[in-house]
């Protein structure tokens, strides 16, 4: 306990005494916490309610590093010098060159907290990013010469949401995989709709609409959605003639009954497609 007190002293920036004296409970202008039946810790100033919660949490949880802020449910209480909200969590996972990656992140996110969540991943509490995730990716890959993946989460408005937001990053990663999105940058904004659907499916049980069993048509439909149902752009992206694209869309309509050139059919098909994919994942 005495070793750990140093951590708490640094956290609260004041002297802390570990004592058995019963008189400790009667000291004025101090805050006293019972540790067990015999010991007390005496903090050399009055604490705010958040700081008091933090100390109780610290006593219960044996927190050893800063990353508990997001790794544990009540870990946010460690954030005594809390940064600005709202913020976003960015998870940066890398293969090697940890020191270089950290140096780059510290130089880019000069005002944000960077937490180490594993040997190969940092989470950044980004309040206002000067660069986009894709730019961070290219800086790290070109400067630290290591492959990386970035997941950016939903907006976090208050400290209590931090742990949930951290768990959501893993969910986003799994969801992107199940939807065959292999981008090195995965953003909550792009998966907002599938996330919502996933939670509905999980709460309501499973249906399995058998939508499509043709990888070429599946890819065509996804690229068509990516290009906002624009025939010309989709044909260009797939490097096929627009007539070939129209032929494939007609074929999709014959197979599924959805003419995804029409907005309502596109929505219905996309929903069914997502449900199909997610049911597979849930099963």
């Amino acid at each position: 306990m005495k070793d750990r007190l140093k951590e708490l002293e640094l956290l609260l920036e004041c002297d802390i005494e570990y004592t058995t004296e019963q008189s400790a409970t009667r000291r004025s202008n101090h805050t006293v916490f019972p540790v067990d039946g015999y010991h007390f810790i005496v903090i050399g100033r009055k604490l705010s309610s958040t700081e008091s919660k933090l100390v109780r949490y610290w006593l219960e949880k044996n927190i050893t590093n800063e990353s508990a802020i997001i790794l544990e449910e009540g870990g946010y209480l460690q954030l005594s010098k809390l940064q600005r909200f709202p913020l976003n969590l960015w998870r940066v996972a890398f293969k090697e060159n940890r020191e270089d990656v950290l140096a780059i992140l510290q130089s880019t996110f000069t005002k944000d907290v960077i937490l180490e969540v594993s040997q190969n991943a940092f989470v950044i509490l980004v309040s206002e990013s000067p660069v986009t995730p894709a730019e961070v990716l290219s800086i790290i890959e070109s400067e630290a010469l290591t492959s990386i993946h970035i997941i950016t989460g939903e907006r976090v408005n208050q400290p209590e949401e931090l742990h949930k937001a951290y768990l959501q990053l893993n969910q986003l990663n799994d969801l992107a995989k199940s939807l065959k999105q292999h981008s090195r940058v995965i953003r909550f904004e792009d998966l907002r709709f599938p996330m919502l659907l996933q939670s509905i499916l999980r709460s309501q049980g499973k249906q399995t609409p058998n939508i499509i069993n043709d990888s070429e048509l599946e890819q065509t439909a996804l690229v068509f959605f990516d290009h906002n149902l624009n025939i010309t752009e989709t044909a260009q992206a797939l490097f096929i003639h627009r007539n070939t694209l129209i032929y494939r869309l007609n074929k999709l309509e014959t197979m599924t009954g959805y003419d995804i050139r029409k907005f309502n059919d596109a929505i219905s098909f996309y929903l069914s497609y997502l449900m199909h994919k997610m049911n597979k994942e849930i099963v």
């Binding site: 130089s107 880019t108 000067p130 961070v136 890959e141 400067e143 010469l145």
Partner: peptide, 27 residues
């Protein structure tokens, strides 16, 4: 990769926003 003596330039060529051009190149 770092032992292959290669250098990469990407489409998203972000620079460190708080650093001068010199420091960006020196980093």
């Amino acid at each position: 990769p770092k032992d292959r003596n290669i250098a990469m330039v990407f489409q998203n060529y972000a620079l460190y926003p708080h650093m001068s051009v010199y420091d960006n190149m020196a980093f």
